[in-house]
Amino acid sequence: MSAPLLEVADLAVTLPVEGERRTVLHDVSLAIGPGEALGLVGESGSGKSMTARAVARLLPGGAAVTGSIRFDGTDVTALRGGELRAYRRSVAMVFQDPRAHVNPVRRIGDFLTEGLRLRGVARAEAARRAVAALADVGIPDGERRLRQYPHELSGGLLQRVMIAAALLAEPRLVLADEPTTALDVTTQSEVMAIIDELRRERGLALLFITHDLDLAAAVCDRIAVMYAGAIVEERAAAVLHDDPLHPYSAALAAARPAVDRTLPRLAAVRGRLVSAFEAPAGCAFAPRCAHAQDRCAAELPPLRPLDGGAVRCARAEELRGRLAPQEVAGG
């Protein structure tokens, strides 16, 4: 990879909760090259959204951040004022619930042109660009849409408006946090196709956050899997599903029912999910892991290179090739 556009190193975040500091991320490192798509996959509490929020400088008040987040060589954790505003134009964010991130009493046109107008673009030119951006996301009658209010648009249409808004800022990196999770499956397919197509056309880098391994594999070059506030595996998207290196990645792939075949029984993962602050010492996944040994509870290994990817598992070398999804498993 050429020099990364985004480089996160040893990122750790704690938040104040009821008078104590809770760890939400520990030791997150990742890099995204220009025009590259990285999927960040995990379940609730894994820290995937917090990672995106840290990158976007949108962490809740009181968050304490250590480690570095570099964008195009500049450390963004220290940016203030005008530099921070300039950075935020380079990094656009698309959220899961579009209705929660748009002002319901302002027209689509105001929403789309606000940023352009602030940058001094004339009203008519801003409207023309907004209509063009809507056309790019598959909304042909842009002029009519500009006069509408958010409640007049379906969830799928509104999410496309949000993508158009993100792209109007001409960003270099898009952070998409579960952008299709609230949408119907046929709409999801369309919205993902739009994101994928525009990203490739414009050479945008993408950090795509999702709980859906298959969806991430379809639109990303590489995938990082998170559990309890840390990355446990990073692989090329094409090989992760069939040849996982970490037992959790394998478990995540195997637990999902398949649409094209009926399984006698799903390979459920025992126990319950843990967040970073309640994770036990050692490997956070060890209590649920079918391959755990005593040493797994003793110490958490670092993320280390293996087979063209990276993995955080003490037994990764011995388990290599034995974690592929199986047709039948207990649970």
Binding site: Q188, S189, A193, D196, D212, D214, A258, V259
Partner: peptide, 11 residues
């Protein structure tokens, strides 16, 4: 429209 191995999103 269901993602799975080898699936691509379609416009």
């Amino acid at each position: 429209s269901v993602p799975g191995p080898g699936w691509r999103p379609v416009r």
